[in-house]
Simulated assay, not measured.
Amino acid sequence: MKIAVVAANGRVGRLVVKEAVDRGNDVTAFVREDANDTVAQHVVKKDLFDLTTDDLKDFDVVIDAFGAWAPEALPLHVKSLMHLVDILKGADVRLLVVGGAGSLYVDSERKMRLVDTPDFPDEFKPLASAQVAQFDELEKNGDEVEWTYISPAADFQADGERTGECILAGDELTTNDRDESVISYADYALAMVDEAERTGTPDAHIREHLSVVRK
């Protein structure tokens, strides 16, 4: 497949690129800086907000790995994703989004999200809230794009091992048989590329909010 990874130099982006390349996909890394820290076969230096339809129209899948943590940059989660949605409207290109766990529901009635639970760490609430807003905007305005939003488990481990086994679930917080909600960046990348490779098949989760947890 022809896969574009936007914001590819980030820690998740780099692992998604590696996973996709290792499986024989043709991957282009879109980076803002001169440096390329990925193993992508092709590299394009261009700011996300300068991307146009022409830049992305020939890919099968675009993976949005954008992430911002500084308080002043948090609104860019919504702004950046909506820019990608706007330029992909009407294009035959699938959009996969690296999401956040805070947007997952903790009840079957879908009335409470993880970010709103009493024990959710205060230090992560601003980021989680920005990602909730990001998903809500995508769900509201993404009718003309074949998107899939993939949230990690609650404990998203940057340096965790790649086990090669994970559970794909929906928009409710899911735990494994050990009552854990945990996933490594590497296993998350595996799940992301799994979903990318479902593109064009009946198994693709179009306009769905997914989550992934270690098996």
Rank of each mutant, 00 (worst) to 15 (best):
N9F: 05
R11E: 15
V12N: 04
G13R: 02
K18Y: 07
E19K: 08
R23N: 13
F30I: 13
R32P: 14
R32F: 12
D34I: 09
N36L: 07
N36A: 12
N36R: 07
D37L: 15
D37H: 14
D37W: 12
T38C: 12
V39D: 13
H42M: 09
V43G: 02
K45N: 14
K45Q: 15
D50Y: 10
D50Q: 15
L51W: 01
L51D: 02
T53W: 00
T53D: 09
T53N: 08
D54V: 03
D54M: 01
D55G: 05
L56V: 07
K57V: 11
D58F: 04
F59T: 01
V62P: 08
I63K: 01
D64A: 08
D64L: 02
D64I: 01
G67A: 10
W69G: 09
W69S: 14
A70V: 09
A73Y: 13
L74D: 09
P75A: 05
P75F: 10
L76A: 12
L76R: 05
H77K: 03
H77F: 14
V78S: 06
S80M: 08
L81I: 08
H83I: 08
D86N: 15
L88E: 08
G90W: 08
A91P: 03
A91T: 15
R94P: 03
L95R: 02
L95A: 03
V97S: 03
V98W: 02
G100W: 07
A101K: 02
A101W: 00
G102M: 06
G102T: 04
L104V: 03
Y105V: 11
D107V: 10
K111P: 00
K111R: 13
K111D: 05
K111Y: 05
M112Y: 11
M112P: 00
M112N: 08
R113K: 09
R113N: 04
